[in-house]
Nucleic acid binder design. Structure first.
Lengths: 120, 120
DNA sequence: CCTTCAATTAACCACTTGGTTAATCGATAG
DNA sequence: CTATCGATTAACCAAGTGGTTAATTGAAGG
C-alpha cells in the first residue's frame, strides 16, 4: 500500500466492478471464480481488482486447496464512513441551503474570504 | 463527468488534498487562493483538483469579480454515505467475526462456494 | 493604456490504472 | 507421470491522473 488508508479505501471503492464484488461478498464468502462469473472481463482483471481490495484491507483471501476463498473485512469501511459522517449535518435538513443563505445575507462572515463585496 | 456518480464521488475523495479542500470548505466558503494557501503545490494543480470536485458535484464555484468563491455541496456526499451505510451492520458489534464463525462452523452455507471441504 | 492580480487553460512529463493475452504455479484427478 | 483446473504473475497497451511551467483570460487600479 503506497498511500494513506483512507485514500486507499476511497480509491478501491471508486470502481463499480469492485463495489459489485464487495456487494457479492457481503452476502457470504466466495471463490474468485464465483466473484468473476457476473463479469465479462478476464480472470487476471478480476485478480487485480481483488488485489486492490485486499491492499485496502477490504477483503481477505484464504487458500483452500486450489481455490481462494474471499471474504469481506467490512471494518475497513468504517474509516470512510466516519469521514463522511462528519459531513452529515451539511446535507441533512437542507442545512447547507440555510448556511448558504446566512452567509449571503449576514454578509460579514466569521471567516476569511474577501467578504464578497460586489463592485461598489 | 464520464463515470457513474458514485464512482466519481469516491474517486474525488480518494485524494488527501481534495479531502483537505472539502474540510476547509466545510467551515465556510473560500476563494481559490484561500484553498490553495495551505498547500505547497502550484495554482494550476489546485485548479484541477477543484475541477474534479466540481465535476463530482461536491463543490460549486461562483464568480465574484476576479475571485472564484467555492462552497461545499455536501448533499453530493450523501450517495457515498448511503452506500457505506448498507455495510454498517457488517462492522458493528464485531458482526463480521460472528458471520465468519457461523460460516465456518455451520459448514453448508446458504450460498454457492464449494463448501470448503478440506482434502478428505 | 498598461500593469497587476486571480484563476484557468495548454502543453508536457512520469506514474498509475484497467484491460488484454500468454506463461506460470500448485493442487487434484486420471 | 501427465493432464487439467483455479488462480496469479508477466509483459504489454491505451487512457487517466497529478504534478510542473508557460501562456491566456478578465477584472481592478494606477
Amino acid at each position: 500500500m503506497d498511500q494513506d488508508p483512507l485514500s486507499a479505501t476511497f480509491a478501491a471503492l471508486a470502481d463499480p466492478t469492485r463495489r459489485a464484488i464487495l456487494a457479492r461478498l457481503a452476502e457470504g464468502e466466495a471463490t474468485v471464480g464465483d466473484l468473476a462469473s457476473p463479469f465479462s472481463i478476464s480472470a487476471p482483471a478480476i485478480s487485480r481488482h481483488l488485489r486492490v481490495l485486499a491492499d485496502a484491507g477490504l477483503i481477505e483471501r484464504e487458500v483452500d486447496a486450489r481455490w481462494r476463498i474471499c471474504h469481506l473485512r467490512a471494518d475497513a469501511l468504517r474509516g470512510a464512513h466516519d469521514w463522511l459522517e462528519t459531513y452529515r449535518r451539511h446535507w441533512e435538513d437542507n442545512l447547507d441551503r440555510l448556511v448558504e443563505f446566512v452567509e449571503r445575507t449576514h454578509g460579514a462572515a466569521t471567516h476569511a474570504p474577501p467578504a464578497r463585496r460586489k463592485k461598489p
